[in-house]
């Protein structure tokens, strides 16, 4: 294929526009059938300073065209991440961004400081949008001042690229997007999961032990395309579209709607080769339209 799929997302040069979404690819080290040639980048599973055991089961439930999850950011903590995973990342020929989490802006900043300069860490995705933790998480993402405070706290501690992963659970995503941009973000991942709930009619209780979970999958895609588009119209920094992408056409919708790159998440659970399939499908689409590079893809991004 002769199509140039490379894309610059801020200072990060990606070989292709398809990025593995946080929480759906682990730390990239035990993914089956990993096809590196098609990976633009990986965003790691969300990490905290300290280990977290996560939420009790059931943690997931399938819903029409989607799934609810309430994993609760189970993870080994930053020191184990640095010891066990970063050395492997350092040998890879694509960037790994670490999805960072905290219960306060200070904790986010400390995580960034600890990871800054560690070989293998190419940047950060600030998670201010996890619906499945009691402290922090989505709270930071639906208040523009809190989102900006967290972004600024990370910006002060690193010069590496910072993406902020936005929550869809807001009345105006443009306000949050601009607040993060002003505080020093280099990119925005739009969007995280929608909060949802499912009831078990055998027990008359929520299916998830956490009661609520984050809805992902094709069910959210049109809403995610709209929110990513709104974010892209509001800022000058790149937006990475995420939400329910299964096929190349799905990804192209986000790209045309103004996104510089996309993330594929839940689709990988059913198809471990989803990222390569989406990458190849985008290239095939461009070629079929006589376009020689992704940069030539027409965008629908009217500025107000």
């Amino acid at each position: 294929m002769s199509v140039d799929m490379a894309v610059d997302v801020g200072e990060l040069n990606l070989r292709g526009p398809v990025v593995a979404a946080s929480g759906t690819f682990g730390y990239g080290t035990e993914v089956p059938l990993l096809e590196r040639r098609a990976l633009g980048a990986i965003v790691s599973k969300g990490i905290f300073l300290r280990p977290r055991i996560g939420n009790p089961p059931p943690r997931i439930v399938e819903t029409p065209s989607g799934m609810l999850n309430a994993i609760g950011l189970q993870g080994p903590g930053v020191e184990a991440l640095i010891r066990d995973y970063c050395p492997q990342w350092a040998a890879w020929d694509f960037p790994v961004l670490v999805n960072i989490n905290g219960e306060s802006a200070v904790e986010y900043g400390e995580l960034a400081a600890r990871l800054d300069g560690v070989p293998g860490v190419a940047g950060f995705e600030i998670n201010v949008s996890c619906p499945n933790v009691e402290q922090g998480g989505m709270y930071f993402g639906n208040d523009p001042r809190a989102a900006a405070e967290v972004t600024a706290a990370v910006r002060r501690r690193t010069r590496l690229p910072i993406w902020v992963k936005l929550t869809p659970m807001v009345s105006d995503i443009a306000v949050i997007a601009r607040a993060c941009e002003s505080a020093g973000a280099d990119g925005l991942s739009a969007v995280n999961t929608f909060v949802g709930m499912s009831i078990d009619l055998h027990t008359y209780r929520p299916r998830l032990a956490f009661r609520t979970g984050g809805l992902s999958g094709p069910a959210i895609r049109p809403m995610a395309v709209h929110l990513a588009h709104q974010a892209a119209r509001a800022v000058r920094i790149p937006v990475i579209g995420v939400g329910g992408i299964v096929s190349a056409d799905d990804a192209l919708e986000f790209l045309v709607a103004g996104c510089s790159a996309v993330q594929v998440g839940t689709a990988t659970f059913a198809d471990p080769r989803a990222i390569a399939r989406v990458h190849d499908g985008i290239a095939a689409h461009l070629e079929a339209r006589g376009l020689s590079s992704l940069a030539e893809l027409p965008r629908y991004l009217p500025r107000d």
Partner: peptide, 14 residues
């Protein structure tokens, strides 16, 4: 258990 990916990445089958 309920299971998401079956390959160890989703942490759904706790």
């Amino acid at each position: 258990t309920y299971m998401g990916c079956g390959t160890g990445v989703c942490l759904g089958c706790a």
